[in-house]
Amino acid sequence: MLNHIIFFSGGKSSFSVADYVKTIFPDDNIVLYFTDTMWEDEDLYRFIYEASDKLELPMLINSRGITPPQLMVQQKFMANNRVGTCSKELKMKVSSNFLKKGIVPEVEKWHNRHHLKADDFISDATIYFGIGFEEMHREGPIRHNWKPFKVEMPLIENVINNDAVLAKYGIKQPRLYDMQFTHNNCKGRCVKAGQGHYKNLLIKDEKTFIELMEQEIVISDYIRYAKQSAIRSGKVKDYMYKDVWEFVSTGNKSAKIQHIIDSNKHTKNWIFGKSHKGQDIKKQFTFMKTKSLEDLEKEPIQCDMLDIGGCGCFLDFD
């Protein structure tokens, strides 16, 4: 009996891969493996649990137990469409440490574990990714990063209709696809997305867009504040961390946080002291680098709708 681990992202493609593997290897030990950013759309969780139930396959969920915004506050660095630290730390590193080194992360939970056919599901396992021909640029790096595991990407070598596979099990596709997103990650808030992606989020889910925009404003100001040499050296206490952490964790806004959000249009050109290099700190940190979400909200029609982007998890871990 062989081991098969399917990197289960909550997308339609990874579901098709799971069905493919179960069809080809019905008597083998198959595990759905989901690394949770704790920042996903509610309907993604509906989908993965329903998928595990109907496929009758065990699902292992691993997580650091923190969200991308919490990670940004911890690192004092804003992940963006050029550097996806959240993908590296919360997905790639978690899975690599677990599967290669046996390091169990902060959160580990099973669903349908009774379908597991052998407790050791890692030894000599083949791991699978829902990468199709349109993402073949990811194939080489993923295979390299996951050595010595054998890596398979059935959607590159086989013509599989994702919608037909969902219909086979009577499962409704995740709602983000209905909202014209190209993937089902992070509730449409992927920090490596482009202007067209965020424009779609603004149109389809304005509440989530505004929440993300406020997080961008607060985290940006906090990073500039925390980069001051006196703060970095510990000579001056970090008076913002507690309020910022509470905000990105619960959404609760202290008077300090509310002031940052309300006055942003006036403070974005302020100079926030000196960095450890002695340079003025005045940069506004954004997810898209070239334009903030606040700018995009004010000038939505002028954005590049072909600039979609996406995290491309497991692409550049090493």
Rank of each mutant, 00 (worst) to 15 (best):
P300V: 12
R64W: 03
V191D: 05
T23G: 15
C186F: 05
N252H: 09
T250W: 04
Y222P: 00
G132R: 04
S9W: 01
N81A: 07
K199M: 00
G194Q: 03
M78P: 01
E40F: 07
I30V: 15
C190L: 14
M92V: 05
N3G: 06
I122Q: 09
S123C: 07
T67Y: 01
F287Q: 09
G102S: 12
N97F: 01
E106I: 09
M59Y: 04
M240P: 00
P69K: 05
I203W: 02
I217C: 03
S220I: 06
K298W: 02
P68R: 05
Y241S: 07
S13W: 00
S292K: 05
G234Q: 10
S220M: 09
V248H: 04
K265P: 00
C190P: 10
V73M: 07
M92F: 00
P58T: 11
M288V: 09
E106Y: 07
Y169P: 04
L176Y: 05
Q74L: 06
E134S: 14
D36K: 09
K168T: 00
K298E: 15
K187H: 11
G11K: 02
Y241I: 06
V83E: 11
V31D: 12
E134H: 11
K88F: 03
A230R: 14
K22E: 08
D124P: 00
Y33P: 02
T208R: 14
G309S: 14
V151L: 13
T250V: 07
W245T: 10
E157R: 07
H4N: 07
L315G: 03
K109D: 04
P174A: 12
K150Y: 02
N3W: 01
H114L: 03
K237T: 12
I24Q: 12
S14D: 12
F314E: 06
F34N: 15
E40V: 10
S123V: 05
F98P: 01
L55N: 06
K117H: 00
I103V: 15
H4S: 02
T67L: 05
N81E: 08
A255D: 13
K91G: 05
K117D: 02
R224H: 04
L306C: 02
D307P: 04
A125Q: 02
P300N: 13
F149G: 11
S52H: 08
T290I: 07
L296G: 07
Y222I: 02
K150T: 13
Q173F: 09
T85W: 06
C313N: 13
V104T: 14
H266T: 11
Y45E: 11
A230H: 13
E89L: 11
M59N: 06
V191N: 10
C186S: 13
G102M: 08
F181K: 11
S95Q: 01
K147F: 09
K207C: 03
K187M: 02
F7Y: 03
Q195T: 06
T23H: 15
T182Y: 10
I127V: 13
C190M: 14
V107G: 05
K298S: 13
I61S: 12
F209E: 05
R175F: 03
S13I: 01
